[in-house]
């Protein structure tokens, strides 16, 4: 199952460290997957470095996790693939709930566009420098961000009268 650990995913963290010691704040290994935790301020330059110098030319996926009530509550995960080297890594950055803003990676991989819009739409993380940051799946006038943990699965809709205490069937 070591699809990610395979060739040189572990080496990538070292290469990043040699390039900029601050860029790697943590390296996690779990089931053969390498996760490189990057400080929020350095996300875009690190991603740029990965694409240009480490040949991670394909952005496979971008997604987010809400760890509410832990702070910083949001985690952003970018799954990168190097097609020439057949390597996968995950870049992760942590974002606080008070200031959920990161630099967009659209200038690095245009494919991040809709993936980041989806994160913005459902999780409410904003992306600096995104060319078209609008809601994508939900209507424009939707209130709230449904994938946040403090958003109920049923939504904030009114409770039907049949569920209210004291309701009697006619």
């Amino acid at each position: 199952m070591s699809e990610r650990g395979g060739q040189n995913a572990g080496v990538v963290a070292e290469q990043l460290r040699t390039w900029n010691a601050n860029a790697v704040s943590e390296v996690l290994e779990f089931h053969g997957e390498t996760t490189i935790v990057v400080p929020r301020e350095l996300l875009r330059v690190t991603a740029e470095h990965c694409r240009v110098h480490l040949q991670f030319n394909f952005l496979s996926d971008a997604t987010s996790v809400d760890r509410f009530p832990v702070e910083p509550r949001f985690e952003l995960n970018y799954h990168l693939v190097s097609i020439p080297n057949k390597t996968k890594i995950r870049l992760r950055t942590r974002v606080s709930g008070a200031d959920p803003v990161v630099d967009s990676l659209v200038p690095v991989w245009p494919g991040a566009g809709w993936l980041e819009r989806e994160i913005f739409d459902l999780m409410g993380i904003r992306f600096n420098g995104h060319p078209d940051l609008r809601r994508i799946l939900l209507p424009d006038d939707w209130e709230g961000y449904p994938l946040r943990k403090d958003y109920p699965t049923e939504g904030f809709r009114d409770i039907p009268a049949t569920f209210l205490p004291g309701f009697k069937k006619q």
Binding site: F30, T35, D61
Partner: peptide, 16 residues
């Protein structure tokens, strides 16, 4: 956490 990607008829189908 785990991310797995397979080849669906339409391309890379991933699950995180």
């Amino acid at each position: 956490d785990a991310y797995v990607a397979i080849e669906s008829p339409r391309g890379e189908l991933g699950c995180y």
